[in-house]
Design a protein around this nucleic acid. Structure first.
Lengths: 141, 141
DNA sequence: GGTTTTGTAACCATGATGGTTACGATTGTG
DNA sequence: CACAATCGTAACCATCATGGTTACAAAACC
């Protein structure tokens, strides 16, 4: 399988917050842009709040605000905040320890997979929310 | 989510074929090393055969053989042969085209996600089956 | 007090995944 | 030719992640 849409939606949410300025946005408004249910948005925003990217405020006029400068949030940060697991899955059952390959393949693969994941994340780290929103606005014009 | 164990199992299978030399291995033997069901192995090997990495032979003494030199098969090749989809998923429903962010975020993200996937694959491409088997054998000693 | 909004639990439909059984087709051996 | 070994593949199932939905309590503001 592939990485779920959580990373995409989280990036969308934060890009919208960065684009729309300092006033709070409600989960319902954000859901209208993403085209999904507000609860899905709130679930994701809960993770982004744990990571310190956003804050929330209940009641009328409430909603969600960016807490950190969008130039200091990279797509890698967002991805890590909402997608916890390692990129590659190892064997579901432990391979045969009496086979020379089975006995040692996991410890060898782990290092390779971590390097591949790090390379992917480094590429995501090259784009900040400021870059992203500028790119999006460029396409809009 | 993360990448399924298909890539890991496929690498395991081909490493075993490279390690055990030219004689064919049966799916049952391979399943014993991977610790799973032979049908799971045959399903994966069917994809690897489509990619031209292995050939099969029925009947007694039959089984599976590497068709290409293990120094010319990289982990990237194996990954691509068994895991088809793009690494990142976009929105499941189309974002709101009347929102400036929603209207253009997908076309912007696609390029970024492809670059991230390419970086990950480039890292996998650094390891061939020969390298991998040597690393595994080094750990075994 | 009443409205708005968040916070979160609960439930569900869907799809991917991996395991299992089953059985036909092919191949080699005696 | 008969038989055993092996592949090829369909069918079914249990499990899990995902995302959508409803519901409702809690907090905040007017």
């Amino acid at each position: 399988m592939s990485i779920s849409s959580r990373t995409t939606i989280a990036i969308h949410i934060l890009a919208l917050l960065a684009h729309c300025g300092p006033d709070p946005l409600t989960s319902e408004f954000i859901a209208g842009s993403v085209n999904t249910n507000p609860v899905v948005i709130r679930r994701l925003l809960a993770r982004l709040r744990e990571a310190g990217f956003v804050g929330s405020q209940g009641g009328p006029g409430g909603g969600w605000q960016l807490l950190r400068q969008p130039g200091k949030i990279t797509l890698r940060d967002i991805h890590l905040a909402v997608e916890g697991a390692a990129l590659f899955s190892l064997h579901s059952a432990k391979p045969n320890p009496r086979c020379p390959i089975g006995k040692n393949i996991q410890s060898t693969l782990v290092g390779i997979f971590e390097a591949a994941q790090a390379a992917m994340e480094a590429e995501l780290a090259r784009t900040t929310l400021v870059h992203l929103v500028k790119d999006i606005q460029t396409r809009a014009s």
